[in-house]
Design a protein around this nucleic acid. Structure first.
Lengths: 228, 228
DNA sequence: TAGATTGTTAATCGATTAACAATC
DNA sequence: TAGATTGTTAATCGATTAACAATC
């Protein structure tokens, strides 16, 4: 029952299930099945049932799963049945995009503070009453707002030292947008977002001269696999 | 030898190795070992050697790997020993951030065209002589510039139809930033970037009341695992 | 009831790790 | 040479899938 018993690879799929359920709910579906969900996500129905079974029995034989109930259960399991305040560090293009992103709220998150070390950006007003704080205020603001999660959007060469500052300030989870591996204490959670990693994964399968000259229409219908 | 023999999970790690080698090269290292690389990335040395062995023997017994040579080999294997022109679809905050991002060039990519359906954004000038094209020009421009890769940065409700337009236009790989699962023909590669998925993966391990009041400094030193 | 789908166990499959001969 | 590290094989480990009794 301890969360450490549950394979991390299972945890990684739960947010994807949750996202799919949200889509289903929006399209008005009340009930779904592991078969439907699996087909939609490119995952076997057995895997979905087995993943959910780690946390209990949420379905009904013969019927399937009540979309809204399962959604709530997953939100509870993932601790997103609340709003996590987050810090954005780095107020460049990406930092701005993150600070303005409307999609966090409905899924358990909000940007509560933005930091940058560029004097020109300090005090710059953003949406939602946010302003850009100087890096000197990092520990103070993160402590005052009880922030545990940071999105790191600074240039690659600053990412490592800033990450350690964040840890000092009490941050426990970092979503790192800088294209480097961070070295942090082992109790700090880190996830990486680097578009080039994903692009290079795809170009392995692409061939420069695999030309499609003039466009070759194809019948849609199949489903692509799951994301990392 | 056919690329389909090689597990996709192995392919997914190669860009991470390549990124680490770039970091090593920048810090002036000439030679490295599977042990060093593994320690740095939180991966076993055996796995790194086994992954590389799918493509040949790049190392020297007793010595290790020549950083620059291995870098070049991986670039070749991943087909990033060239510059892939890409389309950005959606010229909002995120689209702008992608169009301005400086990090693509050195790693095999460039933004060659930007599209949006908002008349106010059309013809808006961006960096690098880019302008925002109307969606009507999608097929024409993608064909003329021989673009095979698109980054999809439109609102969630438009992502599915736009993805199919991209496929019609000859796009073969999509990096999808919209928080939905895309349904596309099976020969189209799709990778997903959704920060909320990564955040929810981390909040599973966080506890709201696991307070660190007043900041608890900790000794850095250990390394976090590999991303997806 | 008959049909459908769950939760779960056992079988299979694949990925990771350990170990070591080869060799620089 | 002695020490180090590769490439590779065999052993282990873990994840996925198949199958089905339980039951709605």
């Amino acid at each position: 029952m301890a969360s450490s018993d549950i394979p991390d690879i299972v945890i990684g799929r739960l947010p994807i299930y949750l996202r799919a359920l949200t889509q289903l709910a929006q399209s008005g579906r009340d009930v779904t099945s592991s078969r439907e969900l699996g087909q939609y996500l490119g995952i076997s129905s057995a895997q979905i049932r087995k993943d959910l079974a780690w946390f209990g029995g949420f379905g009904k034989q013969g019927t399937g799963y009540h979309v809204q109930t399962l959604q709530q259960q997953l939100q509870h399991i993932l601790h997103v049945d609340r709003q996590w305040p987050m810090a954005v560090v780095g107020a460049g293009d990406l930092g701005h995009a993150l600070a303005h992103y409307r999609g966090f709220k409905a899924r358990g998150f909000m940007v509560a503070a933005v930091f940058d070390n560029d004097p020109e950006k300090i005090s710059e007003p953003l949406e939602n009453n946010l302003v850009v704080h100087p890096m000197e205020k990092l520990t103070e603001v993160i402590g005052a707002l009880n922030i545990k999660i940071a999105m790191l959007a600074v240039p690659a060469e600053h990412a490592q030292p800033v990450a350690l500052q964040l840890v000092e300030a009490g941050i426990q989870a970092i979503l790192n947008y800088a294209p480097i591996t961070l070295i942090v204490p082992s109790h700090i959670r880190v996830q990486y977002i680097d578009p080039v990693i994903e692009l290079q994964h795809m170009t392995f399968y692409l061939d420069q001269h695999e030309g499609n000259p003039g466009a070759a229409p194809e019948v849609p219908g199949q489903v692509s696999g799951v994301d990392q």
